[in-house]
Amino acid sequence: MSVSWQTLADALSLGGIYALMAVGIGLVFGVLRLVNFAYGQLIMAGAYAIAYASVWGWPSWAGILLCFAVVLALSVLMDRIVFRPLRTHSPAVMLVATFAIAFLMQSIAVLAFGQLGTVASSMGPLNQPWDVGGVEIRKIAIVSVVVAAVCLGLLQLLLTRTSVGLHMRAASMDFRTARMLGVRANRVIGGAVLISGLLAAVSAVMLTARNPQVTPIFALDDTIIVLAGVVLGGLTRPIAATLGGFTIGFASGLLGGALPTNQSQYLPTFLFAAVILVLLVRPNGLFARASAGAERL
């Protein structure tokens, strides 16, 4: 098992993208106590926007804009139609409802765009290698690490320095008390859904650049791994979820690149065995505070 610089850079960039997705899922969980399984389908929709923009011959910035518009519109729609009526129901019902939405969006994609998928060729230049000190590294690897770092920095500023961020953190600690103290529920939830949608759009751009073949199951595997990472890190704090996402992305990129070919097909087995082991030792998550016994049995 040997690790090359390319593998390391690739693992870092996958970790960065997964960290973005993880914090997107974690933010919504914070205010709604809802694990949004349909997050991957939001990304899939954004990827289709980029792919079709490139098929229509739009410049790549227009494709990225379209991607943001589509993903944000769908996030808000999902909040209005699904999350809002179900807000008071049990987490199991909400989770299965997001399953239904994921299933629905996937079948719409199959019906509208076909099983085989479309190629987002406008993102091709980002996939070219760059020569960094004699080591060839894909441009997207560097771009996604930088973008992830900038996004996470901005998010941290938003959460700690603005009143919306303060409200959001208060709501994720104790929603009822926060409401009594004057936090407006719809605004906080709307804000979290919007930011989570923005992060989904950014992830969609990155993932499309990494893998331009957009199919109805685009980002499905990634979402599953990120969900495991989010729980692995701990859902009680956005930072814990982010670290969990980064860890699992990094581990999965590293293992995927370092394992010999006849073993790399067992990557999910190694990854999920590790997740189960960690959860058995630290059920609240790797990066959760020791006192965070927030969840009931």
């Binding site: 729980v231 959860l279 049995l297």
Partner: peptide, 24 residues
């Protein structure tokens, strides 16, 4: 081991079982 977990941790751990069995 898994029945010691509850909530989301149980959900993800049982999901892990599905992943592993399917993969193998």
């Amino acid at each position: 081991p898994l029945m010691r977990l509850s909530g989301l941790a149980a959900g993800i751990a049982t999901f892990g079982v599905l992943e592993i069995v399917n993969n193998v």
